[in-house]
């Protein structure tokens, strides 16, 4: 598997600094779970954060602070060596996503949104929204523009639009200017994680009517 479409530097930096909305953190963490290039980029940014803390000014901590921590660790059992939680690499949902769904593919609570397309909205803070999309093989999503950023990460199958071909692990970053019609490959049903900053605007009448219902 070779990932061709990656995170931007700003997303990497924002994830490392901890300044992104929860839904955006979720899609970044999911991409990084599949992509060692971006994992290395995030960890390099973390190194910058660490070096900043290292060379930072200091503010004295109260005398009780150390005593409290020593109290905490002394009353604990010897630190348990929990095994790393690494999920089987074959599972469609990487661990951060599995945590939000509460299990695997079978645990997703899909709701039909017409023409065989299904979605499941994930519980995140309201600054941005995250949802899983299920697009039957060969099906097109209505073409639409964006009022904000839209991030789409492929988990299964693939889709193609004016911007290129996106397969498992690839992330498409669409901004205000882009109008596109993603079409799922005919070989396999496509499952994506989509994160949006603001409602999309659809061109066709029917999808526009459906938009409040879709909650996207």
């Amino acid at each position: 598997m070779k990932i061709k479409h990656h995170l931007t530097d700003d997303l990497v930096m924002g994830y490392s600094a901890g300044t992104l909305p929860e839904a955006v953190n979720l899609i970044v963490a999911t991409h990084v779970s599949l992509c060692d290039d971006c994992r290395a980029a995030v960890e390099a940014c973390d190194a910058l954060g660490g070096a900043m803390v290292e060379s930072s000014d200091t503010v004295a901590v109260s005398d009780d602070c150390l005593e409290s921590v020593l109290g905490m660790i002394r009353t604990e059992e010897a630190p348990a060596r929990e095994p790393a939680r690494g999920a089987p690499r074959s599972s469609v949902l990487p661990q951060p996503l599995a945590d939000y769904v509460g299990g695997g593919l079978d645990d997703i609570k899909w709701r039909p949104v017409g023409m065989g397309v299904k979605q499941a909205i994930l519980p995140t803070s309201s600054e941005a929204s995250a949802r899983l999309l299920y697009i039957p093989a060969g099906m097109a999503m209505p073409d639409h523009g964006h009022r904000g950023m839209e991030l789409t990460l492929v988990l299964q199958g693939a889709f193609e639009d004016e911007d290129g071909h996106f397969a498992r692990g690839d992330i498409e970053i669409a901004t205000d200017e882009i109008e596109h019609t993603p079409v799922a490959d005919i070989s396999e049903d496509c499952i994506c994680l989509a994160v949006t900053e603001a409602p999309l605007r659809f061109k066709g009448l029917l999808p526009r009517l459906a938009q409040p219902f879709l909650k996207i």
Binding site: A17, L26, R85, P96, Y100
Partner: peptide, 22 residues
């Protein structure tokens, strides 16, 4: 730094911080 950053998101923004698969 990464532990502190995550704890800060937890405490101040009351949000989960999704982490990459270990």
């Amino acid at each position: 730094f990464t532990i502190a950053r995550n704890r800060r998101i937890d405490l101040l923004r009351r949000q989960k911080r999704p982490e990459p698969e270990d």
